[in-house]
């Protein structure tokens, strides 16, 4: 009981301090184990050199074109995948016949490890941006699709009947009832789908490209430059964190109408 209450009393600043301290500790242990050669630096890299690579990337500006291309691929994959997922999800959810026909194919395609499509996309779309976007789209599509499908199925029948009684036409039901209900589900899956778009971009680059963070990692791996590989991973992780924070901000903004667990408001 007492322990619990002290845990709860931890301030935000205190928590941040612990987070930083933990990261510093891990970093220190990494450094300690590799400088004392307990872990061979050839395989595990050296943290100080990793940091030097990251700093050099940003100081010389070498990283920007690569970062830009990776983020551009992520954005395209996310937007295109979401739009297709939204459209197909709405269509299948509102048409029982279409969904009955498509169901086994959707299940099969979802079960398939889609990363394996990357070489095919490389053949189809070349080594440029398009093949990475295509891979990202296949990953994002299913997340959005299933959420939209579920969102439409779970529209409250009372809300629907009420809108009909208020005179909504079929098109208006789609726009004012199904779409908002479905988008709320899409937004709740935003974290996963943005992450997946990012994965699609980086994995695509890693499997064959001429630019991007994935490409940098691939190059470094080719020359056994493990420090640069780690530097690439660090940059990717920071990017992912920033994207996730952005998504949280956007979500909070767009879903103001949704009740949160313990929201109190003074009247």
């Amino acid at each position: 009981m007492r322990k619990r209450s002290t845990e709860l009393r931890l301030s935000r600043a205190g928590l941040a301090a612990i987070h930083v301290a933990l990261a510093a500790f891990v970093f220190f242990m990494w450094w300690l184990l590799t400088t004392t050669k307990v872990l061979p630096p050839f395989f595990f890299g050296e943290p100080l050199k990793v940091v030097r690579v990251v700093i050099e990337w940003f100081v010389t500006g070498k990283i920007w074109p690569h970062l830009a291309i990776t983020l551009w691929e992520t954005l395209l994959a996310f937007v295109i995948g979401s739009l297709i997922g939204l459209a197909v999800g709405l269509w299948l959810a509102l048409s029982p016949l279409a969904s009955a026909i498509a169901e086994p194919y959707i299940t099969a395609m979802n079960a398939m490890p889609r990363v394996i499509l990357a070489p095919i996309f490389a053949v189809w779309f070349g080594l440029g941006v398009l093949s990475k976007v295509a891979l990202g789209v296949t990953l994002v599509f299913f997340i959005v699709f299933f959420n939209v499908f579920q969102g439409v199925k779970e529209v409250s029948p009372v809300v629907l009947a009420n809108a009909r009684m208020l005179g909504a036409s079929r098109g208006q039901l789609l726009r004012h009832i199904y779409l908002p209900s479905a988008t709320s589900w899409v937004f709740s899956s935003l974290h996963t789908s943005v992450g997946m778009a990012f994965v699609g971009a980086v994995v695509g680059e890693y499997l064959g490209s001429a630019k991007g963070i994935g490409y940098l990692i691939l190059q470094a791996e080719g020359t056994f430059d493990i420090n640069t590989v780690f530097a690439g991973i660090v940059v990717l992780t920071i990017c992912a964190l920033i994207l996730d924070t952005l998504v949280t901000k956007i979500e909070a903004r767009l879903l103001v109408w949704r009740p949160r667990a313990a929201e109190t408001e003074s009247l």
Binding site: V158, V159, A163, L166, Q172, H176, R258
Partner: peptide, 20 residues
């Protein structure tokens, strides 16, 4: 049961029929 559209404000809910 509650039949209001949860994504619309009170005003927008009341206005819904007119908009339709």
């Amino acid at each position: 049961a509650d039949a209001l559209m949860p994504w619309r404000s009170a005003l927008a809910n009341v206005a819904a029929g007119l908009e339709f």
